[in-house]
Amino acid sequence: MASQGTKRSYEQMETDGERQNATEIRASVGKMIGGIGRFYIQMCTELKLSDYEGRLIQNSLTIERMVLSAFDERRNKYLEEHPSAGKDPKKTGGPIYRRVNGKWMRELILYDKEEIRRIWRQANNGDDATAGLTHMMIWHSNLNDATYQRTRALVRTGMDPRMCSLMQGSTLPRRSGAAGAAVKGVGTMVMELVRMIKRGINDRNFWRGENGRKTRIAYERMCNILKGKFQTAAQKAMMDQVRESRNPGNAEFEDLTFLARSALILRGSVAHKSCLPACVYGPAVASGYDFEREGYSLVGIDPFRLLQNSQVYSLIRPNENPAHKSQLVWMACHSAAFEDLRVLSFIKGTKVLPRGKLSTRGVQIASNENMETMESSTLELRSRYWAIRTRSGGNTNQQRASAGQISIQPTFSVQRNLPFDRTTIMAAFNGNTEGRTSDMRTEIIRMMESARPEDVSFQGRGVFELSDEKAASPIVPSFDMSNEGSYFFGDNAEEYDN
């Protein structure tokens, strides 16, 4: 783990906690998980779902989305002020799938948001429990990260689609708070800032007046979040320049895209947490497990152990491969979309394939898809080993990566060399080191050039047997250095459309 220093740990961010010791953190995270579980059980009762239907990941996603929508204050306010045809701002819903006479049927349900809020609060001892809501947002974000390569979004903001390893959390809503900021990748933060800068260039009043003052505060806050992700002084200094700019424009845009590229080699610290679907927490609570009393951590053995003992089902389209669908969801559960496939294969105990080789589309089923041909199958979400999630980018030494994705962002704290394609990355730096950030740029390029592919990161860190909950005997895996390590390699994943 990167030293926490003055930073709060993510469990504290996750639970809005002030400084807590490890036991208190485990208890408050457990409380959050228990609340999600209780809410899910109650919703299944309301909807009269069978046990099997309640364990269907598509039903879980609909129920999670309903509660997130019920608590989305800004959108609710907007919907009330701008009524649109056929949208009731006070209601929320989605597809629920039921097994009827041996076939899967889709039923569109509609609930009062007020009623959903009441059920959620009741499951969370009367609190709004925003930490639990954020947790579900991060699960949705991790699922998107594993399912889609955001080529269009990258290109629109002047970045290269091969930089997708920097895009963790790119679909997280803005209201996801400190826990959300911690899991956002460098590219995601750059993209958010670039969008602001572009608006400022096109709209003279963007930075002016009372609204402009708020915009400015948001801009500086985002700059500080991004600065905190960088691990070298030169990158941090460049972020200070971007933040202090009187009138952010093209120079800042250039600096930010430069920094994003540099992060492929001088990786930023991005938190990883295993956020599971509500249909995993519900049955665990129903079986009598007391998360608050037992304590829970999002970055240790607990999620692995929970998945070892969970039964989750998914709808499967006619030509999809259930094992591939399982891999997709497994990666999402562990926030591992940008991790090295060699490491993932070792931990999972079966070969993890790149996205383009998977015969599976996303987990969600569109409303126009034919239910007649839908089957369902068990998702295999178990693992051979477990490993500690990392909050750091690993040290800054790398190795060759593949054509589709030119770097990785480690999820697990496991000893290995970190793949990246130096030639491709360095070719993108057209040696432009003039301007006010020239000395920093020169320094950053120097550090990137001296990074050695064969150097090892996370020295001495290994994986653990599932029986080793105290992480007492690390097993340090050895990897084939020459092997392909990137998930979005030469990829044809669908595009994420909101």
Rank of each mutant, 00 (worst) to 15 (best):
Q4W: 06
R8D: 01
E11M: 08
E11I: 09
A22N: 10
I25G: 04
K31C: 05
Y40S: 04
E46L: 14
L47H: 09
K48C: 07
E53D: 11
I57E: 09
Q58K: 09
S69R: 03
K77F: 10
E81Y: 15
K87I: 12
K87C: 03
P95A: 09
V100E: 12
G102R: 08
E115Q: 11
H135P: 00
L143S: 08
D145V: 12
A146R: 00
G158E: 08
M159G: 02
R162S: 06
Q168T: 02
T171H: 01
L172C: 04
S176W: 01
S176R: 00
G180L: 02
V183K: 01
V190I: 11
R204S: 01
N205T: 06
R213T: 03
C223W: 13
G228V: 14
K229P: 00
Q235F: 03
V242Q: 06
R243S: 15
S245N: 12
A251S: 08
S262Y: 12
S262M: 12
L264V: 02
L266R: 10
G268S: 14
H272C: 06
P277M: 08
Y281W: 02
G282D: 00
A284R: 09
Y289S: 06
E294Q: 14
G295V: 10
G295M: 08
S297A: 15
G300W: 10
P303G: 09
F304N: 11
F304D: 03
R305H: 13
Q308R: 14
P322A: 13
W330V: 00
R342D: 09
L344T: 14
G349R: 10
K351I: 14
G356R: 08
R361Y: 03
R361S: 11
Q364W: 09
M371W: 01
S376L: 07
R384G: 09
A387N: 05
I388V: 12
N397R: 15
A403K: 01
Q415T: 05
D421K: 08
T423E: 00
S457L: 12
Q459A: 02
S467I: 11
S473C: 14
P474I: 02
D480L: 05
S482E: 07
G485M: 06
Y487R: 03
F489S: 10
N492S: 15
Y496N: 11
Y496H: 11
